Simulated scan of single mutants.
Amino acid sequence: MTLPETVTDHLDGEEPVAEVDLGGEDRLLVTPTRTLVYRAEGLLSEETVEEYPHDAERITLTTSRRKAKLTLDYGLDGEETLSIPKAKIDEVLHPLLAGVLDANGITAPGETVKRTFRFSELTLIVTDERVVKHIGQAVWDEEFEEYPFEDVTDLEFEPGNVATSVVLTHDGRQERFKAPNEDARAVEAAITDALLSYHDVRDIDELRAQTADEEVDEPATETEEDSPFGDGPDLFGEDEEPEPEVEEESTADEATDQLIQQVEEATADEEPTDDEPTSTDVDAAGDAPDTAELAAEIDDLRDAVEHQQAELERQNDLIEQLIEELRQGR
């Protein structure tokens, strides 16, 4: 489709890398440095072109029944708000985030953003070289975490009743985050395909074998040979701060810890003391707790808590939507 002359004048020689139809003749175009929004002339408005530079420090998203608003925070230079139809948010968010990551030097020149996901307070961006994760009400800000594929040695997915846990082994540590089950397959495919392509392997098993070979060939450093503390934690505070867990995970972990404590107490009651002979009687052994059954109960409890958290988040979204509509006088 031919671009209106007004839009061409604002491009300043840049070529659009993405274009989104906003309805009618309105269009959104993403260039390497800016996002442009073209509003066609109407009964109550003139033809306009709005510009949103990609060097933003923070992006927030608010939605109502029909509209979505993306606010780009430029620090001392203030804020700019982009209003689009709610149904178009996924189409707009993907190229916009790609432009912001590039402008802020998070992605390297030539690096391609493959997929973007937004789950409640989790934003997940998959490129051909890394995974970028942001947790919080903002879609993105400078408190993000990134996991370059160069240091990823393993990838697993643990399905649950409500959400699937993504377990990424990066630089010797396991990083966990959750995706709703309805989107879990898309997340799994995006990360797996990008990771395998980066390492040029056929599957995760081959990646594990390749990583194991590299670890065997790598000579031990002087610190590893001489340190009396072995592979334990860094005692001088140089380790990265632990990743903050989302609320539903901490709630589920507390409940799980209580069950684990009950299992340990029950097991302790069955252990013989120094004054009692060890019993091999079949009836006594039959009174021992069924660890498999207790483990299943722990999994069920975790899934129930996750389901309750998802329901609370849904109700919170409904309340926010109601407040927004009341403010608009509906």
Rank of each mutant, 00 (worst) to 15 (best):
L196E: 09
D231S: 11
G230I: 12
R173I: 05
V167Y: 00
V167D: 08
A163N: 13
H170Q: 05
E224V: 05
D234Y: 06
D200G: 11
E182T: 10
D203P: 07
S227E: 06
E158I: 11
A190V: 05
E240M: 06
E224S: 05
R173D: 13
H170N: 13
D205C: 07
P159S: 11
A189V: 04
L207V: 07
P228C: 12
V201N: 00
L195M: 05
S165G: 14
D234E: 14
A186D: 06
R173Y: 13
A194E: 02
T192W: 07
E225H: 01
L196I: 12
D193E: 14
F177D: 02
A179M: 04
T192P: 01
Q210N: 06
D234W: 06
G230Y: 07
D193K: 03
V187S: 02
A179G: 07
D213F: 00
D213S: 08
H170K: 06
G232T: 09
T223V: 13
R185C: 00
E218P: 00
P233G: 04
P233A: 08
N181H: 07
E238G: 14
A209T: 09
T192R: 11
A194F: 01
D231C: 02
D205A: 12
A212H: 04
S197M: 03
F236H: 12
K178Q: 14
Q210F: 04
E206V: 10
E214R: 08
R173C: 04
G172N: 08
E182M: 08
E188Y: 02
F236T: 11
A209C: 02
E206T: 15
V201R: 01
D200C: 04
A186H: 01
E222T: 03
E214N: 01
A209F: 07
D183N: 12
D183G: 03
Q174M: 09
E225P: 00
R176G: 03
D171I: 00
G172C: 02
D226L: 15
N161P: 00
D231L: 13
A194K: 01
E158F: 12
D203A: 11
A179L: 04
A186S: 04
E222R: 03
V166G: 06
E188H: 00
T223D: 08
V162C: 02
R185L: 13
E214Y: 02
E188K: 11
A179S: 15
E175R: 15
E218W: 00
D193N: 10
R176S: 11
E215Q: 01
S197K: 09
